[in-house]
Simulated assay, not measured.
Amino acid sequence: MIIVLLGPPGAGKGTQGERLAARLDVPKIATGDVLRAAVREGTPLGLEAKAAMDRGDLVPDAVIMGIMKEALASPMAARGAILDGVVRTTPQAEGLAGTLATLGRSLDAVLLFEVDEDELVRRLSGRTTCDVCQRPFFGRAPGETCTEGGQTGTLVRRKDDEPDAIRKRMQVYQDQTSPVIDWYASHGANMVRVDALGTLEHVEARVHAALGISR
């Protein structure tokens, strides 16, 4: 199965994506992860991405989709993939559709995680992030130590996790994502809306039920 995850920051799509990937035995492919890997490995597309970042520019969608195509064509994704952060705008939705068509594959579902804005503000304002691995944590204070992945980092609260900044991010998300939802609807995608309020187990159960996955 190839599944796209959509949802605002703090909706829990990353965590649910990891759980779903484990359940289906497929990789979770996040744009940031494959982009950093391509840059680190010095691939041709990775070098293009690095050049853009060094100039302070956004990495072009064509470069990102090229890197994504390589990831989806790899043996690890032969049985499918959970795509997290790959589609944020309509051009990216179009780009992914073209990439999948080139590979002779299709999109099985789009999971849209929905949470009330006030709940998102509450969640994100209590989040800290490791300054090394960028892993988010909830309920842990700034200054604590992170040792994930064998590296030692310090937990910090990002400026964009302040309440006012969060609400601005929500508005940007809504402005970008509404056209994406409309695009997928007009192209007959299997759009699955998931209530992301509740425990990890409750949300996971809703995801499985929506996709027809037996527990």
Rank of each mutant, 00 (worst) to 15 (best):
G12D: 01
G12E: 03
K13D: 06
K13S: 04
E18Q: 14
E18N: 08
L20R: 02
A21Q: 08
A22T: 09
D25K: 15
D25S: 15
V26L: 07
I29F: 07
A30H: 04
A30P: 05
D33L: 08
D33H: 08
R36S: 01
R36C: 00
A37H: 08
A37W: 00
A38I: 00
R40A: 14
E41S: 11
E41P: 00
E41M: 05
G42A: 06
T43Q: 07
E48I: 06
A52C: 12
R55Y: 06
P60E: 10
A62G: 06
I64T: 13
I67H: 04
E70F: 05
A71M: 02
L72S: 02
P75W: 15
M76L: 15
M76G: 00
M76N: 07
A78H: 08
I82V: 15
L83W: 11
L83M: 13
V86P: 01
V86S: 03
V87D: 05
T89G: 03
T89P: 01
T89R: 14
T90R: 15
T90L: 12
Q92M: 14
E94P: 00
E94D: 12
L96A: 09
L96K: 13
G98E: 13
G98S: 11
L103T: 05
R105Q: 07
S106K: 14
S106C: 03
L107N: 07
D108F: 06
D108E: 10
V110I: 14
F113T: 06
F113S: 11
E114W: 11
D116N: 14
E117D: 15
E117F: 07
D118A: 14
L120S: 09
V121H: 07
R122M: 11
T128H: 06
C130L: 08
V132Q: 13
P136D: 05
P136E: 06
P136Q: 04
F137L: 03
F138V: 14
